[in-house]
Computed example of a mutant assay.
Amino acid sequence: MKSMEKLAESLRLNSNLSLDDIPDLNLYMDQVIQLFERQFADTKRNEDEKVLTKTMINNYAKGKLFFPVENKKYTKEHLILISMIYQMKGALSISDVKTTLDKMNEKVTDDDAFDLQEFYECYLQMVENSAEKFKVDLQAHYNELTKEIRKLEDRDEDYLEQLLLIALFTNMSNYYRRAAEKMVDEIGNNE
């Protein structure tokens, strides 16, 4: 089994769309797709996987996950919201993502004082901090797990380590997803 450090490195935890990655001019859909494909290429599970497609963007627009596009061009604010949708849709339903972003879309379009870019920078900083904590937690879980595996009388130690880690990671993922869903429900109830 590869080391937890190599596993964390292979996950490309710091693959995010930074504000510097987003041009200051508005982009057409094909340019948006190219930007996301380029930025998130290392996070794809295989070559056939698509990060973002025209259908996805059209469905997000029809579902009102972001405020309307003008003249078929996407602003920096649209790209920030699409980036957040991309990250959230891995754990939440599209309906939950919409509920979560409804008020944000109102703030972006109605509140001249609200700075989405400043909010996004804060989000990216929190993501970076979380990635560092994740690496430490990953190693701690592995260390704890190897102690437990050694207690078992089975010669297929590598497989059992992998199985136990997969089960543990999916369970932890479920904890976080359920916590996020509870918070989405609170947002939905407040509106």
Score class of each variant (00 low, 15 high):
F66A: 02
V69S: 07
E49T: 03
L163A: 09
K182Q: 09
T55K: 06
T99M: 15
D48W: 04
K147A: 13
K135P: 08
E106H: 07
K103V: 15
F119D: 04
K54F: 06
T55P: 12
Y60E: 08
G63S: 12
K6A: 10
I22M: 02
D115A: 13
D185L: 08
D112W: 03
E128C: 10
N26C: 02
N171F: 13
E121A: 13
E47L: 07
E132W: 09
K103R: 05
D96T: 08
T146K: 05
N71H: 00
N174R: 03
Y142M: 15
M172Q: 02
Y60V: 04
A179R: 00
Q117R: 13
K73Q: 02
L92N: 03
I85E: 15
E121H: 13
E186A: 05
K98C: 14
V136H: 06
D24M: 06
S93Y: 01
Q87C: 10
L19P: 08
P68H: 03
I94F: 15
K44A: 11
E161I: 01
R150W: 02
Y123P: 13
T170E: 01
E9A: 13
T55S: 15
Q39D: 07
K89T: 14
K151C: 04
N46C: 10
D21S: 07
Y142W: 03
K182E: 14
S130E: 10
L27I: 08
L13W: 03
E9W: 00
T43S: 04
M126P: 04
H78L: 10
F40T: 04
M56C: 14
T170G: 00
K64R: 14
